[in-house]
């Protein structure tokens, strides 16, 4: 079940075309087991397309990728069993209760029936929504729903967690909590793959790939990227590095 190498994700020359438009233009990178990996880019840079290919939601036009040791095209079912995915838009059933939502996920993931109760309680406690588990999801505050979605994505103890812009529209305090939680997951050995366009947040990542218009413009640890892109400027941050890179690639 487990891949032999240390790489949780291996991406090679991945291309996605929608008709004439080439959203992802042949990107190659890898993500190591247990690290927090950030895919950075502005809106429309190809972040979501990439994450959706890696989760087996859309098929790549060409190129290859292995996620948790499985080929994303020929073994997409196995990929889906090994990952948790939280999409950009809140996508749980708002007309169902948290309890019913979790029940749905429990039924679909390979979670043994004897562990349902334990997993259910774990999600409710982790998301801190135990006391509202029978209220309608649509009546919960945004932050609570977000925690429920994250809990559902972790329900089956996936090897890799994919988060597409998880903190958009979330207040700073919740955001800090969120990154603390991600750090905990990473310490438990779960690989976390995050896309974001908030550069200050990306400092929390162990390693980063920056993409623009479907191509990789920089990769490495946050410190490495800052050093390479803005040499000599003391106190530069990822934001500055990103803006510099964007200016460079602009025609």
């Amino acid at each position: 079940m487990t891949p032999s190498s240390d790489d949780a994700i291996l991406v090679q020359d991945l291309v996605k075309r929608f008709g004439e438009f080439e959203a992802v233009k042949g990107i190659t990178f890898s993500v190591r087991r247990g690290e927090i990996f950030g895919l950075l880019g502005s809106n429309g840079s190809g972040k979501s397309t990439t994450i959706r290919m890696l989760c087996g939601i859309i098929a790549p036009t060409s190129g290859r990728a292995r996620v948790a040791g499985y080929d994303i095209e020929s073994q997409s079912e196995e990929v889906k069993h090994s990952i948790g995915y939280m999409s950009q838009k809140f996508s749980l059933y708002e007309d169902l209760t948290p309890f019913e939502n979790i029940r749905f996920f429990l039924g679909l993931y390979n979670v043994d029936r004897s562990r349902w109760k334990e997993r259910m309680e774990w999600v409710l406690e982790t998301a801190r929504i135990t006391e509202v588990k029978d209220r309608l999801t649509r009546d919960l505050p945004q932050g609570w729903r977000q925690r429920l979605a994250l809990g559902c994505a972790l329900l089956h103890r996936p090897e890799i967690l994919f988060l597409d812009e998880p903190t958009s529209g979330v207040d700073p305090v919740t955001r800090r909590h969120f990154w603390g939680f991600i750090r905990e997951l990473s310490e438990q050995g779960i690989t976390v793959f995050v896309t974001t366009h908030y550069m200050d947040e990306a400092e929390n990542c162990d390693r980063i790939v920056m993409i623009d218009l479907g191509t990789i413009v920089a990769q490495g640890s946050p410190a490495q990227i800052i050093r390479e892109v803005c040499p000599g400027s003391e106190g530069a941050d990822l934001n500055e590095a990103f803006i510099t890179l964007m200016a460079r690639s602009a025609p």
């Binding site: 809140f90 996508s91 996920f105 679909l108 993931y109």
Partner: peptide, 14 residues
């Protein structure tokens, strides 16, 4: 319409 199709696609469900 609810955007939940995205969740369905990401689940191991045929």
């Amino acid at each position: 319409e609810a955007g939940t199709m995205e969740t369905i696609r990401s689940l191991p469900l045929t």
